[in-house]
Every structure is written in structure tokens, then in C-alpha cells.
Design a protein around this nucleic acid. Structure first.
Length: 866
RNA sequence: GGGCGAUUAGCUCAGCGGGAGAGCGCUGCCUUCACACGGCAGAGGUCACUGGUUCGAUCCCAGUAUCGCCCA
């Protein structure tokens, strides 16, 4: 074995072995209870970013542990066809050739996207292999593959038949660059400091003006009313009168509507029903005309009169100037307000009146809320439940049609002869009116429509497949809080509606990986992403995984610091060298894949086995509670500080003992090291598998080895005093700069005799020579150590100067005095004695007694030094 | 405007009713037969502020300040 761990070569080798051995398939545990996770499908155009690395590591940890615990564990991988994103990529490619998708036509374009997918679509799945994802590739799915497309169509048709999907003219969010409608949550709001412009609208009867305030003066071209609140005293007389719309000189009424916010601006608002959702509603209530003045290119339409063809933002400036010239510009003030941007391309979205398909979500909401409130599905951490429920209460219908080509085409046909709409599983050839002049809807479905079906469509629905019966509902969903609304909520709604069961029992929500420098969410579009593949090449996949998990406290954002990845890498090297030492120098090998705990452990063995048992139980508890970072933090400290430090150092001295003692030690070292590798395997699979190949008996891969079940072991009581005295001697040595080679006799006094191994370990761990003896009288000339009832005395002669020893004791005495004072204050308080729990009072009394004893001994020691 | 979260060591963060923890960084010593990517030891904190609840508050409650996120 190399003296340093080299991840690169090892990682490539083991992934192949795991995959070809079928270890990723749930069939490796044919009799196991099913446990399943479906991956949040990354965009097929995507490349792995650090957010995926975290998300996938969490899922891999869960699935690897369940697999080791004997479950039929399925982690189902796949990718999302990602409508807009993918279409954008291929259109960009075409643009480089000087073409547009329209030059190719719909069919050829889609063909081209499939070609692109065949060539580049495996980028992300290849990267998942680099990360070590133990996904069952034999079950890989794609949201646009044949089976899932059938599921999509079945859902659309069923919802249509249930009147839960409809087509209507509504205000939607339009992206003028992507040329498609967006759903509400695909719009990101950012605060902009803009202008609030006050415009005077004159009454037709010449009796003055109403002044309205707006941030979007260009939409005035489409105004068909001015609205005021019905209770607003200021405008009581104005309601019902007519105004002359400036520039276009159209007569529009003043209407009273409850929807008007009295405190905004002047309390009077212009109403543009075709370009604002609130105005649309006001328009509906008052029967106002809807005049579209901005087109799909975000240019002014013919209805905009003199401004026809002008860009919306240019028109804003021009209209403001004209109003000023007309003397109708009352005032302009700076105003901060939220502006919607396309989440794909950052273009400012345009609210537009448009004919689109919508899912009526109201009737899907209740079961999806009940699933969470009833506890059928639990969020981890729980606080996301409130967030989820709050959101669900305020849902609007979901605009699902997209003016794209790449996606599931809406299965609706229109009969030009009679105007009938046909929605069906099979492509219709003829209308009931007899006409065969049918046109299929040009639009495709929102990508999230197919993602919403992912937990059951990937398992074979709508067919009754074995996988569906076995693995649905899935067990745990792992995802970031950023897509709770996009995805999680919709899966719950669709899953419950179509299968009657919530699609998962637990939802593990994690934060975003953030760049510590900028605090920004790391994503490719933000351009600030550390490339996980580069990190894997530099540090190894295990290091990236471990550092991400250690930083990932439940539900909080994760700062990614290169230093912490490096720390994780050094841990891998530590583990590597510890196991190398165990195998090569301690000659431990052929360790069985399970069991093999020593029948008759020595005292040091019993201690480390007892600790292993405690730590295993605690790791299990933490992992079951999804506290991954705590679990592996605990394990990290146990492995480094206890097993491969204290115990390994103790084992070194035992290797010179008699053969029975040695045998128990080697056996212990073998099983403890093995179990540490097992416990660590879910988070750092590569290095642990490699080390296991050197340590184990070669019968089983670690990936499918059993999860540790450690038999109970009783730790010898003397360990506490051993560690205390050893640490005391080391401190003494360090404080007085005494070289390890220097002889250091230590007299140990104790009420009960200490076993021989205790003395041997003190000698071996410190280089001192301890012997049992009587308390020196006087103590003068010795330094005194104490731990767990054991006292040890080191003669000072020739070792140190008395002054520094005096200072050391004085400092210690000061600390003891402070502690005594605090304990007394507490215990002298009758309220404390009356109201604090009995064990807390007892503990405080014990602390006081011990501190006082120690204080007294040190005081005597100090006085004797003089 | 509404909601959520954060504020703890120089840095990045855990902990969350009974004497403050980790990693990195820093200081000293150690090239002892795994690892110098290491070992041993050490320094470093009014746990944002102000009140309250409690025998007891970094932890619970209220308010304030600053920062971040989500929604309108």
C-alpha cells in the first residue's frame, strides 16, 4: 500500500466493480423490505454543480446504508428533458450555423434535439458516476421517454375529463425572449428602483383631472378605465364620470372597485385589463374592454396608435416625454418595486392576456395538505411544513402550456369545421361532426408537468408493474428548498390524485451550497460555481462528499470552503494510513465481513468495543433522524481521536504481549477497523471499499456488507484514570519542555490496586516509568496529578524549576476557587435546593466536594513548595 | 408590506435550559518503528443588544439592530 492515499485511480476502479457486480440493484437483497428514492432528475442539458453534489451525496448516504441494512434499496436515476433549457441550447447551436428552429421546421428540430441528447445527454450521468452515486442504472428514466410520455398523456386526458384542466384567456407571464408563457413560480421578482409617474387624466366635461400613479406608463395605451376604492371620500363624486385618456383621446370611465389599494399613489389607478392581473379582475367585474397594446416581442401593437412597433421600454420614455409636453405629467418620484424576470434568461417578463391551458389546482390541494398535516408525509426539518402549507393555501391555477417545440405536445385537437376540442389518449382522425380537418394544439406542456409524475411514472404507471407495486410509494425524497413549490408540492398533488397515496413518506430538505466569498447560490447560470468535477480531480470524490455533508446542518445553507475539502482529504489520508498500519504492521487481515468479535477481549479491547457500540448506536439514531452532518461528525472524531489514536497507540504495546492477549487485540483491531469502514462507507464509499479490500477476507464487497451490529461490551473503569493521568503527564512534559527521552519516574497512589495493564499503558503512552507507591511525605518536590480517584506524583528534582511549577499550581488553584465560589452560591440558594431537579442538586454537591478536595490538596502542595 | 432564518473563537460553522464545541488558522515542542496530509500540548469567546420567564438562559419569550432568503 502507498504511504499516501491516491483517490484518482481507486475511484475509477471501484465504480466499475460495483456497477458490474449488480450492487446498485435492489435485487442484491432479494428478500429485503423495499426502500426507494427517486432522484430529482437533473436537466439533461446540465452539468453537475456543487448543489447536485450535496443532494446526491445525501441520497447516496441514505441508500447505501439501507442497502447494507438489508433492504431492497432502489435509488432510481434519470434526467429531465427540461423544455426551455434544452431548446435554448440547441437553438444556440443552430444560431452558430446561421439558422433558426423555424428554418428546420418542428419535426426536424425535434429530431435535432434528440441527436443532441444522444451525443451530450450523458454528461451529467457520467459525472454522477464520478461522484459515486449508487443509482440503479438499469432503471434509468427520462421524462420524455416513451413510458413517461404515456403517463403524461394519461394524466392530461384524465384531468381534462375531470374538468381539472381547461383552456382560457388569462393574464399570464410572458417571456419575450423565450417566446413562451411561464408559470408564476418561473418568475423571479427583484426590487428595482424605478419611477412612480403621476399622470393627469382630464374629465371629459372639463371639470379638472384625476391623477393616477403608475410605474408602467406605456400600458396607459391599453387603459379602459380608472378605478378608485368605493369608500374613498376623495373620489366619491368622480365615480361614474368619464375621462379622456391622454395621447389616444379615448373616453374611459371612473369605476369603483374594492380591489384598489387606497394608500398607493393617489388612490386612483389606471386600469389596463390586458396587461395586469389585478386590472384584469377589475375589468372582469366592470365589463371593461381588454386592449392588448404590447405584443409577444414586447413591442407596442397597432392599438398603441403612434407608438406602434416601439419597444416597451423606449415607449415608456417616449410617452413620459409626450405627457410632459402635454402638461399632463404631474410628478415623477423614485420608487422601489418588484419587477418580474424570467427564471431562465433574466428577461423582464410581460404580463399578457393570452389563450393558454391551465390546471385547476384547488381540488388537488386539500389531499396534498392533508398528507402533510396528518403525518403521512413528514418534512425534515419540520419547519418547512408551515412554509409548504402556507404556499398551498394561496395557489392560483397553473398555466401549463408552453410555446415551445421540445416537450410533451398537448394532446388536444381542434376541429376547424365545428370548433370542437378533442382530448384523447389516441390521436383522433375525425371529429364527431364528420370533419377530418383536425389541428393539434401547437403547444407543449410545462416541464414540471412531467416531473410532477416522476415518483410513479418512473416505476411504470399507468401500468400495474412489479416495480410500482414494490417501490411505490417511495420512502424518502431529498431536495433543496428552492423547488418545494415547483416540484415537491406538485408531486404530492399529482401522486395523491392518481395513485391515492402520497408519493413519499419523508422529505429531506437541504439548503443551497453557497460561495463563501459572495454568499451567492452556486449555480451554473450565476457563473460562480466551483466545478465539482475539478474538485473531485483535485481532492477526490470522497473528500468533496464528506466536506459537503459535514457542513450541511439540517435545513441551512452550506458554505463551501476549499479548506474544508482539504481537511476531508487529509482525513482520508489518515484513515488510509491507519488501516495500512493495521494491515501491514499489526498484521491484521482476512477480517470476516461480519461478526468476529473477540470472545475474551482484553481490557483495552473491551473499552474500544464498548465505545464502538455506543458510537454505532448514536450514529444510527442520528442517521434515522436525518442528522447526517452530526452523525458523521461524531464518527469522524471517534475514528480519529479514539480508534486510530488512543486505541491504536495502546495496541502497539500489546503487540509485544503474550499470544492470547495479542490475538484478542488483533481480532479487536480487525473488527473495529472494519466497522469504522462500514459506518463511514455511505459517505466516503471509495476509500472505505479500497481499504476493505486490503483488510477483509475477500468474500464480500463493502457496498453490500452488513451494517454493524456491535455486541455489548463492558468498558473497564480504569480507562478514565488512565487517560487522565496520561494526559496529565503529557501536559506536565509539554509545560516544562521536558524531552520524551528524559527519564520520568511516576509514583501512583490509589485506594484500589490498579491492574498491570494500566501501568504498562501509562509507560507506553508517555515514556514515563510509573510504579505503585505511597504518597510522598512531604509532597514537596513533586508535582501532583489526579484523575478519577487516582493520584500520581512526579519528582521535580532536576526536571523543572520550582517557580514555573508554583505558577502552574497557583493558576489551577485560582480556577478551583472560582468554581467553589460558584457552586456555593448555587447551593446556598434555598430556591435552588427546592426547585431544581434532585439529580442536578446532587451533581452540584458532588462537584463542590470534589473541587474542595482537589483545592485542599493543591493548597498543601503549594505551601510545601515554599 | 407579509413570512422564514441567521447573529457563538481570527475564519467557516455546530450546539440550544444546569460550567462553551469542531474544522481551518495561530503559538510551543516532537523528524518516537502508519500518517509532518502527522503527534503532543497551548492561546483565543460579556454566545449581537435590551428587557422578561426561571432556582438557573448562549439556549425559552418579547422587543431592538444588522444581514440573508422566500412571498406580495
Amino acid at each position: 500500500m502507498n504511504p499516501t492515499y491516491q483517490p484518482g485511480e481507486v475511484e475509477a476502479r471501484w465504480y466499475e466493480v460495483w456497477e458490474s457486480s449488480g450492487s446498485f440493484r435492489p435485487e442484491v437483497n432479494p428478500d429485503g423490505e423495499p426502500f426507494s428514492i427517486v432522484i430529482p432528475p437533473p436537466n439533461v442539458t446540465g452539468a453537475l454543480h456543487t448543489g447536485h453534489a450535496l443532494d446526491h451525496t445525501m441520497q447516496d448516504i441514505i441508500i447505501r446504508r439501507k442497502r447494507m441494512q438489508g433492504y431492497a434499496a432502489l435509488w432510481l436515476p434519470g434526467t429531465d428533458h427540461a423544455g426551455i433549457a434544452t431548446q435554448n441550447v440547441v437553438e444556440r447551436e443552430l444560431r452558430a450555423e446561421g439558422k433558426t428552429r423555424h428554418d428546420l421546421g418542428r419535426e426536424a428540430f425535434i429530431e435535432r434535439v434528440w441527436t443532441w441528447k444522444a451525443k451530450y445527454g450523458s454528461t451529467i450521468t457520467d459525472q454522477m458516476r464520478r461522484l459515486g452515486d449508487s443509482t440503479d442504472w438499469s432503471r434509468e428514466r427520462f421524462t420524455f421517454d416513451e413510458g413517461l410520455s404515456r403517463a403524461v398523456r394519461r394524466v392530461f386526458v384524465t384531468l381534462y375529463e375531470e374538468n381539472l384542466i381547461y383552456r382560457a384567456n388569462r393574464i399570464i407571464n410572458w417571456c419575450p425572449r423565450c417566446h413562451t408563457a411561464l408559470s408564476e413560480i418561473e418568475v423571479e421578482h427583484e426590487d428595482h428602483v424605478g419611477e412612480l409617474i403621476h399622470i393627469k387624466y382630464p374629465f371629459t366635461d372639463g371639470s379638472g383631472y384625476i391623477t393616477v400613479a403608475t410605474t408602467r406608463p406605456e400600458t396607459m395605451l391599453g387603459d379602459t378605465a380608472v378605478a378608485v376604492h368605493p369608500d374613498d371620500e376623495r373620489y366619491r363624486d368622480a365615480v361614474g364620470k368619464m375621462l379622456l385618456l391622454p395621447i389616444l383621446n379615448r373616453e374611459i370611465p371612473v369605476v369603483a372597485d374594492e380591489g384598489v389599494e387606497r394608500d398607493f399613489g393617489t388612490g386612483a389607478v389606471k386600469v389596463t385589463p390586458a396587461h395586469d392581473p389585478l386590472d384584469f379582475e377589475i375589468g372582469q367585474r366592470h365589463g371593461l374592454e381588454q386592449i392588448v397594446v404590447i405584443d409577444t416581442e414586447a413591442n407596442i401593437t397597432r392599438a398603441g396608435g403612434p407608438y406602434v412597433g416601439m419597444d416597451r421600454f423606449e415607449a415608456r420614455e417616449a410617452i413620459r416625454s409626450e405627457l410632459r409636453e402635454l402638461g399632463l405629467l404631474d410628478s415623477v418620484e423614485a420608487h422601489s418595486h418588484a419587477v418580474g424576470h424570467c427564471s431562465r434568461c433574466r428577461t423582464v417578463v410581460e404580463p399578457l392576456l393570452s389563450l393558454q391551458w391551465f390546471v385547476e389546482v384547488q381540488s388537488l390541494v386539500d389531499p396534498a395538505m392533508d398528507a402533510v398535516t396528518s403525518g403521512d408525509t413528514t418534512f425534515h426539518p419540520r419547519r418547512w411544513e408551515k412554509n409548504y402549507l402556507n404556499w398551498m393555501e394561496n395557489l392560483h391555477d397553473w398555466c401549463v402550456s408552453r410555446q415551445l417545440w421540445w416537450g410533451h405536445r398537448i394532446p388536444a385537437w381542434y376541429c376547424d369545421a365545428c370548433g370542437e376540442t378533442i382530448v384523447s389518449m389516441d390521436d383522433p382522425t375525425e371529429c364527431s361532426c364528420g370533419s377530418s380537418d383536425l389541428r393539434q394544439d401547437e403547444d407543449v406542456l410545462d416541464t414540471w408537468f412531467s416531473s410532477a409524475l416522476w415518483p410513479f411514472s418512473t416505476l411504470g404507471w399507468p401500468d400495474d408493474t412489479e416495480d410500482l407495486a414494490k417501490f411505490y410509494p417511495t420512502s424518502t425524497l431529498v431536495t433543496g428548498f428552492d423547488i418545494i413549490f415547483f416540484w415537491v408540492a406538485r408531486m404530492l398533488k399529482m401522486g395523491l390524485h392518481f395513485t391515492g397515496q402520497a408519493p413519499f413518506t419523508d422529505i429531506l430538505i437541504h439548503g443551497m451550497v453557497r460561495d463563501v466569498e459572495t454568499g451567492a447560490k452556486m449555480s451554473k447560470s450565476a457563473g460562480n460555481a466551483l466545478d465539482p468535477i475539478e474538485l473531485i480531480e483535485e481532492y477526490g470524490a470522497d473528500s468533496l462528499r464528506l466536506s459537503l455533508i459535514q457542513a450541511a446542518a439540517p435545513g441551512h445553507d452550506i458554505p463551501l470552503v476549499l479548506d474544508s475539502i482539504d481537511a476531508a482529504r487529509r482525513f482520508g489520508n489518515k484513515l488510509w494510513n491507519a488501516v495500512r498500519f493495521v494491515v501491514e504492521f499489526m498484521e491484521v487481515s482476512d477480517v470476516p465481513a461480519d461478526g468476529g468479535y473477540p470472545e475474551d477481549p482484553g481490557p483495552e479491547d473491551a473499552w474500544v468495543l464498548a465505545r464502538l457500540g455506543e458510537v454505532t448506536a448514536e450514529v444510527d439514531r442520528l442517521l434515522d433522524a436525518y442528522r447526517l452532518s452530526d452523525a458523521f461528525g461524531l464518527l469522524y472524531n471517534f475514528a480519529w481521536a479514539e480508534v486510530f489514536d488512543w486505541y491504536l497507540e495502546m495496541a502497539k504495546s500489546i503487540s509485544g504481549a503474550d499470544s492470547a492477549r495479542q490475538g484478542a487485540m488483533r481480532q479487536t483491531l480487525g473488527v473495529v477497523t472494519r466497522d469504522v469502514l462500514k459506518l463511514f462507507h455511505p459517505v466516503i464509499p471509495f476509500v472505505t471499499e479500497e481499504l476493505w479490500s486490503h483488510l477483509g477476507d475477500g468474500t464480500t464487497l463493502l457496498i453490500v456488507a452488513s451494517w454493524p451490529e456491535v455486541p455489548h461490551s463492558e468498558s473497564p473503569a480504569e480507562i478514565t484514570s488512565l487517560q487522565g493521568i496520561v494526559t496529565g503527564i503529557r501536559q506536565f512534559r509539554s509545560q516544562h519542555q521536558i524531552p520524551r527521552k528524559a527519564e520520568m519516574p511516576v509514583i501512583v497512589t490509589t485506594s484500589d490496586a490498579l491492574p498491570l495493564w494500566w501501568y504498562n499503558q501509562v509507560a507506553s503512552l508517555t515514556g514515563a516509568t510509573p510504579r505503585a507507591g505511597d504518597r510522598p511525605d512531604p509532597v514537596a518536590g513533586h508535582t501532583r496529578l489526579s484523575a478519577d480517584g487516582v493520584e500520581a506524583f512526579i519528582p521535580l528534582t532536576g526536571l523543572i524549576d520550582v517557580d514555573s511549577e508554583r505558577q502552574r499550581i497557583a493558576k489551577s488553584i485560582a480556577e478551583l476557587e472560582a468554581s467553589i465560589a460558584r457552586s456555593r452560591t448555587k447551593l446556598d440558594n434555598p430556591n435552588f435546593r427546592d426547585r431544581a431537579p434532585r439529580d442536578v442538586v446532587a451533581l452540584e454537591e458532588q462537584r463542590l466536594a470534589e473541587t474542595e478536595t482537589e483545592f485542599e490538596k493543591q493548597r498543601i502542595q503549594l505551601s510545601e513548595l515554599d
